[in-house]
Design a protein around this nucleic acid. Structure first.
Lengths: 126, 126
DNA sequence: TTCTTATATTCAAATATACGAGTATTCGCA
DNA sequence: TGCGAATACTCGTATATTTGAATATAAGAA
């Protein structure tokens, strides 16, 4: 029954792609729609090169899609639900981290913002 | 506003812990209750040493809990919902992998089994 | 065409992770 | 007490990932 371990391998590969602070932030930022590399670079305070590299990886795994328009490349989530699923993982954070973040209201705020900013995104899985 | 990037770091750290085929399988196996290292070792066809190492990592991040009983150490998911959340990620797998797995019915079967085997687990977090 | 901006690619060094082998530790039993 | 089984820990090595710097491409403006 290698199909089970196959699924495990696919899932772990997927998680590996997302498991980077920069990429998590990129997915966060893309929750409400497409953005260019330069915009992401500003918002996240990261060099554009780095953002570009992360986006290339995310794109290679079909987590984001690229739409070129002139010299700007717009990136968007292939599955907007990904952002919600990801934030949902906050449930499983270590208690210390969770209470720390909860104290600052980060998770709650993020949840509210994400849900508010992506009202219909979940439906249109185009 | 470093709280956002703090959340991203915590989430990525969490994903990093799960992002290994062996550990995904361990989480799968633990979905229906506690198991010993030796049982996991058999079921997954992995050396016990390796299983033990993975469990130590999962435990360090409070994803699993240990209950010692004699010389057997029973491990269980700290949050049984983790297994469901993880399987849910199959939605975001690359289309190629997804259709391959779908053709074999792996995801559907797994979903059914997992849901069926974990009816009340969500409540008894002991 | 030349210049400028936006994004990609390549390379090498630093860092992190995975792995097995060997060695502890802990427990139950005699 | 001593032995064997179950699990944990500590290494060194192999491999993978991350990173910035440098270079390359692509598109619009002059």
């Amino acid at each position: 029954m290698p199909s089970r371990s196959l699924l495990a391998r696919e899932l772990s590969a997927l998680l590996k792609v997302i498991a980077h602070a920069d990429r998590v932030r990129i997915i966060e930022e893309l929750r409400s729609g497409a953005l260019e590399v330069s915009t992401l670079s500003e918002r996240l305070a990261l060099p554009a090169t780095r953002v570009s590299q992360h986006l290339a990886l995310l794109k290679a795994h079909r987590l984001v899609e690229e739409r070129r328009e002139g010299r700007y490349h717009h990136y968007s989530l292939a599955e907007p639900a990904l952002a919600e699923w990801l934030l949902d993982a906050a449930r499983f954070l270590d208690q210390r981290a969770r209470s720390d973040l909860a104290a600052r209201g980060v998770i709650e705020t993020a949840t509210r913002i994400w849900r508010a900013e992506t009202p219909d995104q979940t439906k249109e899985t185009a």
